[in-house]
Computed example of a mutant assay.
Amino acid sequence: MGDYANYLVPERYRIDAPERTDMERRMIGWMQKNGWLKPGKKGKHPQIINEEGWGVTARGSRHMHPLEFHQMRIEGKVRWMREQGNLTGPEDRPQLTPKGMLKVYGSGGPDAVSRPFSVESWLEEKGALGGVAVEVVAEGKGVFTSLGAGLDEVTCPKCGASIVEQFVEMVATWCTAEGYPLVPCPECGAASEIRDYKMSMPWGFSQIGFAFWNTVGDLSEDFVAEFAAELGEPVRRVFLKL
């Protein structure tokens, strides 16, 4: 599938530098305090597009997503490791084979099958449960788009007309305009907030975005609501695919 992210983007257009810094400190601190994040490691998630970031823990993965998404990732990896001859033992107590020891730790040995092994903990350690990065637009207006995830439809909130072919130009005009003006619909002429145009893949319009890179699936509605409540304002979820 390639790299992908679920962004949580505040609905406010302008957030000044001191408040952006405070937002990052509060939200990352909140997630770390709950045991959902740990400092990222160089060369592992979330070191994507050269961003500093934090790794999602197994506890965080279970909390941030519908539980079945997390379980599917773990169970899928267990099945693959058994097929490759890296795991043996009962389902509730898998153990590494000598081949698995070599794969996981770079060394094998006859004691491999005597060691309990947690696939979940291993995936957390290697960064395979994803990571979180905070992206800031320091100057000008911020636009977080869906990129490779596509934008198949955009409609006017006033007349319902399809304006997908004109929308990118409308956003570009809004970005270069003074202030945060309403943007007229090219079909009916009625002006609306740029964020109120209805998009098949929502875009975010703000100067800060919290990116959840390569996690086990979509963020749950409960977690998004919890995040917004902790932030103290509404957020928009933006799916991005590279």
Score class of each variant (00 low, 15 high):
4 Y>K: 00
4 Y>H: 06
7 Y>A: 06
12 R>C: 07
12 R>L: 11
13 Y>G: 12
14 R>M: 11
17 A>M: 08
19 E>L: 05
24 E>C: 00
24 E>L: 04
27 M>W: 04
27 M>A: 02
28 I>G: 13
29 G>H: 09
29 G>Y: 06
30 W>V: 05
34 N>S: 14
36 W>G: 13
39 P>A: 14
40 G>L: 08
41 K>R: 15
48 I>L: 06
50 N>H: 08
51 E>A: 06
53 G>M: 05
54 W>S: 13
54 W>F: 15
55 G>K: 05
55 G>E: 10
57 T>N: 12
60 G>I: 10
62 R>H: 11
63 H>E: 14
65 H>L: 09
66 P>T: 07
67 L>M: 08
67 L>K: 13
69 F>N: 12
70 H>W: 07
70 H>Q: 04
71 Q>H: 08
75 E>P: 04
77 K>Y: 03
80 W>T: 02
82 R>A: 02
88 T>R: 02
90 P>G: 07
90 P>Q: 04
91 E>P: 01
97 T>Q: 00
98 P>V: 01
102 L>H: 01
103 K>H: 04
105 Y>I: 00
106 G>R: 08
107 S>G: 03
109 G>R: 01
116 P>F: 02
116 P>D: 06
118 S>P: 10
122 W>N: 08
126 K>P: 01
127 G>W: 05
127 G>H: 10
127 G>F: 05
127 G>L: 10
129 L>M: 04
129 L>I: 03
137 V>Q: 11
138 A>R: 15
139 E>Q: 14
149 A>V: 02
150 G>M: 12
151 L>C: 13
152 D>H: 12
153 E>P: 01
154 V>Y: 01
163 I>W: 02
163 I>F: 05
167 F>R: 03
167 F>K: 04
167 F>W: 07
167 F>S: 06
169 E>I: 01
175 C>Y: 00
176 T>P: 09
177 A>L: 14
178 E>K: 15
181 P>Y: 08
183 V>W: 05
190 A>E: 15
192 S>G: 13
193 E>S: 14
196 D>M: 11
198 K>S: 03
199 M>I: 02
199 M>E: 15
201 M>T: 06
202 P>E: 09
202 P>V: 10
209 G>P: 03
211 A>P: 00
214 N>R: 07
215 T>G: 14
215 T>N: 13
219 L>S: 04
219 L>R: 08
219 L>D: 05
220 S>V: 07
221 E>D: 14
221 E>C: 00
227 F>K: 08
230 E>Q: 15
231 L>A: 08
233 E>A: 12
234 P>T: 10
234 P>G: 11
235 V>W: 00
237 R>H: 05
239 F>K: 11
239 F>L: 11
239 F>A: 02
241 K>V: 03
242 L>W: 11
